[in-house]
Design a protein around this nucleic acid. Structure first.
Lengths: 338, 338
DNA sequence: GTGAAAGCGCTAACAC
DNA sequence: GTGTTAGCGCTTTCAC
């Protein structure tokens, strides 16, 4: 059996309250007492019992993180960054995957595991703003992405419209006029919100430059996997639609597109320039390397954790809506040959 | 404040022991009582307090998972599979990243967060078998990979030597004789164990076919990122070493190699056939798609969770060493043109 | 600076 | 089938 505070106190010859004080770094303890206690802790290899501490404090230092799938590069990187940020704050992250399922997202928000954690960071895909009340829960929630807006909850997100417009303008600046959009909203498709915003940015940029908007160039996809990028390019080529650039609303789609453009024998970027969205670390190793929009994932990770911790400490403050900055990252898939 | 068992009991007009019985699915309760209690639970939106339950039971239903980095595809997929397997068993996973750091691996094993979880699954990279006693801890540990063997602890791992030999033999069967090995052990390199075993398999296969073993074809790397695969091919080409195939000890290295071979204008697989190791889902979307060794990651995830749960339930059973099966997955990077 | 004691919410042994 | 009670290990108010 593991040693308890009492065991340590007995060995050190002090009251067990004193041991608790030492463990919690309480100030006014004589040096001799402190070192006696520390020696006893060392000898018994004492570790505080977190369940007891949590029960007493009503706080576990655990937070939940609910993302669609760790196998998607964006979420693997986001999760990695959130775990590291949390660790630096003394917080432990309990990750779960919602697999694009409405049920699992509701379970993440409402299920009994919420009880274990002090708060939750969630990136909802299947839920929409119509489900806004699902997000109003006993314990703090920070919502990522813009598929959902729930007025009484904290949000941390990216500037989707502006960033998508910037990517499109960048392609226009390269002289491209027939810019395909892969991953626009589709009637039954998931990720409506994000997709809609990036589509909006794309159209805004075209309009701003007087480029007519051709519906044939806007390709909806099922989900956001590489295979969907492949399929989009395939359908474009099959239909014989001319195009000289591709803006994919996510890097996975862009990587799939790259693969299929290569397979079709097209030159990138001479025949078709390609830019994605998310700035995954994989982009550098694509053939050719993939230009992308860095939408601020690293900032989002840090801001999400800090916003959640702040809300836990301060439950009554008004909800915040925070957006992080973006940047275009230029690589071979759009670079002019020099 | 959240409702407690007592609140529910008061509302339902029963003793709070009865409520506990209902919550825990105890058998002998009258249907009327049960439904009264359930109505009260519903009305108060009661959720059991896990800290209290854990404190009482000495068991949290939380397990730790320590992997090098979620940004590495293999570990993202492994983690994803472990989380899902655990969830199906009612267990929650608390993931941390050890970043190839010896200190962080020791912290995962010995640190105070061990206290929160019932057990730990760890894939050590920086620690070696010389650190075997670090793995002997109060609470159950399951060790993944073969960088470490600690005799009194459970292990779940893959058949590295056999799988690497099979990959090499497969290339030999394709008529290749100058097979480069990317990711062999290097004096100061990490992941010595895994690397050494796969190198051993490679050499065994060559020897079995009477192919002389050329040290120039064995390329050590720093870590196992795509950039290291790029560097390995670059050095090979720069040195003018002839080669007609590449076996990379991990897919990330192989994907980097693919990228650099493409950049050098070599035809894959005609000039150089490439096979990796791990069967990441990315492999399908590489250009060309990457052949690989499926070393049994999915089985490892399930087996690791089950072995840990079994050990938690049964702390005194003898330690086990379990190996899962592998398979060669053929794709374009090694396929003969038809 | 240290000690005694209450109680966080729950489970389970023990009565009835 | 239901009620009473002890106690898991800890933090913290209140004394001294």
């Amino acid at each position: 059996m593991a040693a308890t505070l009492r065991d340590v106190a007995r060995l050190a010859g002090v009251s067990f309250r004193t041991v608790s004080n030492v463990v919690n770094g309480y100030q006014y303890i004589s040096d001799t007492t402190r070192s006696k206690v520390e020696a006893a802790i060392e000898e018994l290899n004492y570790r505080p019992n977190y369940s007891a501490r949590s029960l007493r404090l009503g706080r576990s230092n655990l937070i939940g993180l609910a993302v669609p799938a760790l196998t998607q590069g964006y979420f693997a990187e986001l999760t990695s960054e959130i775990i590291d940020t949390a660790r630096a704050r003394g917080i432990i992250v309990l990750t779960e995957q919602t697999n694009l399922s409405r049920e699992l997202e509701i379970d993440a928000l409402q299920g009994s595991r919420r009880q274990i954690t002090d708060g939750l960071i969630i990136d909802p895909i299947a839920l929409t703003s119509e489900d806004a009340d699902q997000f109003v829960t006993q314990r703090p929630v920070v919502v990522l992405g813009e598929n959902v807006f729930s007025p009484s909850v904290d949000h941390v997100t990216m500037k989707n419209v502006e960033a998508a417009a910037a990517a499109t303008e960048y392609l226009i600046g390269l002289g491209r006029r027939r810019i395909a959009l892969i991953g626009t909203t589709s009637p039954g498709g998931v990720t409506m919100g994000t997709s809609a915003l990036r589509t909006q940015g794309y159209r805004q940029a075209l309009a701003a430059h007087g480029i007519p908007h051709d519906p044939v160039l806007e390709l909806p996809v099922g989900v956001w996997g590489r295979e969907d990028g492949v399929a989009a390019i395939r359908s474009l080529i099959k239909a014989g639609t001319p195009f000289d650039a591709v803006f994919a609303v996510t890097d996975l789609l862009a990587l799939g597109a790259l693969h299929e453009l290569n397979a079709a024998g097209l030159d990138i970027p001479d025949d078709v320039a390609v830019i994605g969205f998310d700035d995954l670390s994989d982009d550098v190793y694509a053939t050719p390397s993939l230009s992308s929009v860095d939408a601020g994932r690293r900032s989002i990770a840090a801001l999400a954790v800090d916003t959640l911790m702040d809300r836990i400490a301060n439950p009554d403050r008004p909800p915040v809506y925070r957006e992080v900055d973006f940047a275009i990252v230029e690589r071979e898939s759009t670079r002019r040959h020099s």
